[in-house]
Every structure is written in C-alpha cells, then in structure tokens.
Design a protein around this nucleic acid. Structure first.
Lengths: 338, 338
DNA sequence: ATGAAAGCGCTAACAG
DNA sequence: CTGTTAGCGCTTTCAT
C-alpha cells in the first residue's frame, strides 16, 4: 500500500481511505489511486486490516456439508452477511477435527460472532459474561443458555403433514423419527400430538431412524415383511433423505407411491423437487434462517442486545406427487352414521 | 499474550516460543505459560500471526457444495494439509459471488497457494512470473497453463465401464454426457473410443446431459417414448447424480434395473452405495486427490518446483447391482458361427 | 534459557 | 481534502 501511495505521490492514509470508500478524497485522487493499484497489482492485506481495525466485521460459520439444508443455509449466508456489512469465515466440521477445534480457529481469526448449523456441542464458556463471543445456532441438536437460536416450528410442520394426510383419508399414518438429530424430538412429539388430536392415538407408530437414506430403506424392508393389511397407508419421514430411502426401497419392491403408500418428507430439499421423486415435504426456508441468524448476530454486536433470542420459523407444507388418497379409504369420521 | 507474559513474569518472546513448540524454553516455563494462558483464557491471534510470520502456511480452498465428490475432497483436505504443516482457508463458490471474488478473498488472507475443486475460471495472471501464487486445480473444467492439475483418467474409467458391460453381453450401450462440466469431454471421448475398440461404433449414442438428476430423468423419458426394441440395454451416465435420475425415472415407469436396462454411474458417491440404488460406478478417490493436491502445492512452496505438474489418478470400477447381463443377450462375437 | 527491540501492513485519531 | 503519528498482537533477530 505504501508503494501505491508513493506512486501516486500521496500519503498511505489517503490510499487507505480510498480503498475503504470513505469520504475524504477527491475524485481525481481516487481515480489515480485505483489506477496505481491496478498497475502494481496491489491487493489489500486482510490480516493487517483485521489486526488494526477496531472491528473485524467477520462472522464465523461452523457447518457440515452432509445435510442438504445446511448447504442451502451456507449459500444464503453470504448475501445476508453482506447486507449487514459482514464478511464470512467458513469452517467445516469434519469427523477428524471436532467442533471444538473448528470453533477455536474461527475465534482465532477474530470472528465477532459465530453461526453454527446443526451443531452438537454447547458453548457455555464462550458466551458467559460480557464481551464474550455471541453464538447463533441454526437448528441446534440441543438447547443451550446464552445463545441465540434460529429454528423451525417443527411440531407445526409435522402437524401440517398429518392434517394433510388425514384430509386425504389416511388413518394409519406412521412416522420414522430422527433419533438424536436436530429437531427430531420435536418432530416426533408433533407427530404424536397431531395424531391424538385427530383421534388416531391407536394408529401411532414411531419407527426409529436417523435422517439417513438407509434408515428409511430399513423401515421399508421391515414394513414389507408384514402382511399387506398391516401396512400403514402413509408414512411421515423425519427428513427428505429418509423419505428418499423409504421411497426407493418401496418402489424397488414393486409398491406404488402414493397408491399403496403415501410419503411425506421434511426439508423440501432439492431431492424432494426432483421429478422422479416428487416428494410432498415440509419446507424450511434456508434463506430466511440465514438472514435471521445474521440479524441476530448483528443485534448483539451492533445494537447491544444481551437477552437471548429464540427465533422460530413457520414451516409450510409443499404438496407434491408422493401423497394421495389411500387405496381403500378409511371411512370418514361420520362413516358410522351411514 | 503480553498479559500471559506478565503473569508468568517472562518476556513476550518466550511465551511466543512456547506456543509455537519451539525449543528454547525450560520445561518449567512451558508449564507455567500454559497454565497462565488457561487462567486468562488467552487464545493466539491468527491475524497477528499471519501479519508477522514470514510464511502464512495457509492454503486457500475454493469449492462448491453441490457435487458429492467435492464434499469428499474438502473433508479429506483437512488431514492432508495438516500432514504437510498447512492450514486451510475455505471459500465457497456460490452463484451470487463469482469465483473471482472468492479467489480475491483467499489471496487477501495470505493463502500461499490455492486449491480449486471443479472450478471454471482460468487464473493466468495469478500464476504468471515468479513469486505468484501457485494454483492447484482438482478436476478443472478446462485446462490451463501455469497451474498444477490433479484429475482422474476419465477415459480409462469409462473404458472400464464399457468393458464391463460388453463382458456381460451388452452391445447397445448409450452414454449420457456432462456437457461442459468437469471431465465430461474426456468421458465422452472415452466412451466413443471404447465402443469403437469393441467394434460397436454403430451402437454409439450420446445423449446430452449436465451431471444433474433431471438430465438423467429427461433421457429416461426420451428412451421410454421409443419402441422397446429400440432401447439400449445399458446406459453409462456422466456421473452418479445423472444415473440416479435415469434410474429413478425408469423404475417409476415400471422398468427393471438391471433386467431391462443396466446403468453405470461415475464418482462412486454415497448415492451409489445406497442399498436401494446400488449403482455400479466408476470410483475416483477423493482422499487421494486431496493428498496429491496438497503435495503439489507443498512442492511448489517448500521445494521450489516451478514446472507444471499434471497428476492423473487411475479410477476403478465398482460393480454393484445396477448392471447385469442383458435380457436377450446379443450373440457373442463368435455367434455367427453357430 | 531469556529479554529487548523492531516492524509486518494497515487504520484511527488528530492536525493541518 | 491531505499528511503525521501511533500502534494492533505477534514473530524475528540479536543480545545477554
């Protein structure tokens, strides 16, 4: 940068102003600075900026690349951060490193706040007391104090799925849960509650799963081993990947979807939208979650908020081709009167 | 850090030594430094280290999260970098930002070299002349001068697929290509060459695609519109995602795989391994590619290599359940003699 | 084995 | 509008 200043014949400070788009430099100087920078191939040094600036205006992001929803969030985070005047530092959680270490790296790089996506750990010591690093968790596996949370109203999402299936005439509606994965407990509870609400408590069936395709396929095989009359007429999977496995295994076995079994997923991922999968699914807006997470961080950093926020997003059911009326519809509630 | 030094009653320089595991501090001092750091909650400041160190020992990584292979590479890059004494800085390529800008950010953070995964751009100006930033491209879309490339022997991979299918008795083997995506041209050529080698030039059929599920599904629908006798008995898709789309659409239409059509994918991604997909696929080792890319960077940075390297990995065919003999096997080459 | 001092490339606060 | 000055937190070099 001093090279640029020398070339133009001005002070370093002025060049700095120009590069930060701050007022206080004449149009002509700006032009000449940019030109000199171009000629010299100058590029601002982030490390030095980071060191000297009072604020880094950097947000750390801790993410995994294994879940489709997460990918969407990361992508949406870039524009959201820019909008609030922040920059992103990514760090992947991979099995060989641990969330702890990833977090350390982000903090070492002066992240003013950290946004985690579907993380497991709790970060008490980071958030304790004043001046500690704010954490915003998107769809965390567990709830924690001292952090902001952005999550979906899982129960509401599942309820919509159940309502939709019941309206189609289904009664034997099963659920494959997500074990200890983010949101799974809520989804399971939502399923149970919604079933009871429709007077279908006797039809409640929860199959253990873990959000993977294989867990869906496993349940499919278990169901296929039963007598056809014992099959549920609809299944709500814990997420789209699980629904995908269920669907794939059922189709392979010669069943028709939705004729024999209706299937609902969760996430409305790209998978659900594929023409040959065409899955009815509960949609969580990745872009919205990203925007709200950045805003939550910005509130703490720029507006001095200190109270925890629990931000709950409303999901919506996207109806596609994997759900339809059951082949032998259960009589509607008034059926006995006929 | 000066706080730690003060607390222990030594100089800052000594604390620095301790944290870098450099020799020159007594065991007792080390212990006390670590303890004081712990008590004060001290964490080294990466920005300052970056600024002051002669070498950053950081490798930039430019990646996308949309292709399964890429995800595997990123994960494998962490241990590979550590092994060579480097640290990673990630930057996602997302539609809203452009590869250029991502690259700028990585360089601003003092990346000594940049590893790109499946990128489109060419980076001449970065690599021109001495002292410029080395670039290592993994599976680049286009070849460029001045950069190291790590790629798979695509033609060899496709050839193995064709050989496998021919050995099973297939003759009408079609290919769905990947348009302008990384490796697609080579795969297409490999298909043509292998078909000719088996005297099946007349059976060459290339369907345009783009590595997405939908392109596979589209081809499936086009094929289904034909008379059954006109169907190829086997299809080699450009990658696993495309194969997945093809498979899904064919199954939905009531065809059996591999009885009616055999399918081969490319990448051996997680998708291919799913029990209900069970796709024969050409495997590229993500871990190996990651390791070789880091090594290529290290060679330039630590050993002063200046000549370009073109590193070609041998793929292997993983045979699974999506390929089998054709229903009405073509007569083997000697068939006319019967 | 330890300390003193210089400075990485930049920004902030102030002065002109 | 422009220049001067003083560090940010660390590593490096040289001295002790």
């Amino acid at each position: 940068m001093s090279d640029v200043a020398a070339r133009v014949g001005v002070s370093q400070a002025l060049v700095s102003l120009v590069f930060r788009n701050q007022p206080g430099a004449s149009a002509d100087t700006r032009r000449r600075v940019f030109q000199a920078a171009e000629e010299l191939g100058y590029r601002p040094d982030t490390a030095a900026q980071l060191l000297r600036r009072t604020r880094s205006r950097q947000l750390g992001v801790l993410f995994t690349m294994r879940h489709p929803f997460d990918v969407g969030v990361v992508e949406a985070l870039y524009p959201a951060a820019r909008k609030h005047g922040y920059t992103l530092v990514l760090n992947a959680m991979v099995a060989t490193r641990g969330e702890r270490q990833s977090m350390e790296e982000l903090l070492g790089l002066r992240s003013e706040a950290v946004i985690t996506i579907g993380a497991t750990s709790s970060w008490e010591h980071l958030t304790t007391g004043v001046g500690r690093t704010p954490i915003v968790e998107i769809n965390p596996r567990t709830r924690a104090a001292g952090v902001d949370v952005v999550r979906t109203a899982e129960r509401k999402g599942i309820r919509q799925a159940v309502d939709h299936l019941v309206a189609l005439g289904h009664r034997a509606i099963a659920h494959i849960d997500g074990g200890r994965m983010p949101g799974a407990t809520e989804r399971r509870r939502g399923y149970r509650a919604a079933m009871r609400r429709h007077g279908l408590a006797d039809h409640i069936r929860v199959h253990p799963g873990d959000y993977t395709e294989e867990s869906g396929a496993r349940v499919a095989r278990a169901l296929l081993a039963r007598a056809p009359a014992q099959l549920p007429t609809a299944v709500i999977a814990g997420n789209d990947r699980c629904a995908h496995g269920l669907l794939g295994a059922l189709l392979r076995a010669g069943l028709r979807v939705p004729d024999d079994v209706s299937i609902v997923g969760y996430d409305d991922s790209q998978l659900a939208r594929l023409s040959f999968i065409d899955l009815t699914s509960v949609r969580q807006e990745a872009a919205e979650a990203a925007e709200l997470a950045v805003r939550a961080a910005a509130e703490r950093l720029d507006e001095g908020r200190t109270a925890d926020r629990d931000i709950v997003l409303d999901p919506t059911l996207v109806v596609r081709g994997s759900t339809g009326p059951p082949r032998t519809p259960s009589p509607p509630d008034g059926g006995l009167l006929r």
